[in-house]
């Protein structure tokens, strides 16, 4: 089994790579749609600007590759910026995103009086059963670094919630597509367990 990791110039992939290798996964880090489509499951990580990232995805045909991959029914995991790019659009530079899950990525409001980015460890409380949370206690802490958060329209796509001034969707899913706002690859043993769950997940 090979895990494809989408390389689209959106941040450092090293930590995702080392975490997957520590779990014994065979990985293929690539920016080629053809190569990625031959893998058994797909991860698209990413940090940075949603508009810049989606522009790179489009320029390389990776937006269509991700859509095609999702359509095959094989498991797909978005991480951090990846959890925003699956939505219809982002408030960040008014980016048009992939539209795989209905909703918008919103910025934490200055009215909350909190520091933005939301950076550090925060509790993730699952609101639905999902194999990705197998063996992970409700309220376990995961590492976050982000200024925008997923705000899906359909509550049935929310997998888990986290509180930072407001309660936001820190994990979302639709069918074989799962996306998490936090960084499982930087979230200690619970994070590694989540990645292992994804490797075991049949979609």
């Amino acid at each position: 089994m090979t895990v494809g990791v989408v390389d689209y110039e959106a941040g450092n992939l090293k930590s995702v790579e080392t975490a997957l290798l520590a779990l014994g996964a065979r990985i293929s880090i690539s920016s080629s749609p053809e190569e990625l489509l031959t893998t058994d499951r797909l991860i698209f990580p990413g940090v940075g600007d949603a508009a810049a990232a989606t522009a790179v995805l489009r320029a390389r045909g990776l937006d269509e590759a991700i859509r095609s991959f999702v359509a095959t029914g094989r498991p797909v995991l978005g991480i951090c910026l990846g959890s925003q790019i699956v939505l219809d659009r982002s408030e960040e530079n008014q980016a048009t995103c992939l539209g795989l899950i209905t909703g918008v990525a919103r910025r934490f409001s200055a009215d909350l009086g909190l520091k933005v980015p939301h950076m550090g460890w925060n509790q993730v409380v699952p609101t639905a059963d999902h194999p990705i949370f197998a063996g992970i206690p409700s309220g376990a802490s995961f590492y976050f670094v982000h200024s925008y958060y997923p705000s899906p329209d359909d509550h049935s796509t929310v997998l888990a919630e986290t509180e930072y001034g407001i309660r936001f969707a820190s994990a979302i899913a639709r069918g074989n597509l799962t996306a998490v706002q936090f960084h499982p690859e930087k979230s200690g043993p619970h994070g590694l367990r989540m990645l292992q769950n994804f490797l075991d997940y049949r979609g």
Partner: peptide, 8 residues
Amino acid sequence: MLEKRIVV
């Protein structure tokens, strides 16, 4: 709630 970090 965001947790306070201990950085070694």
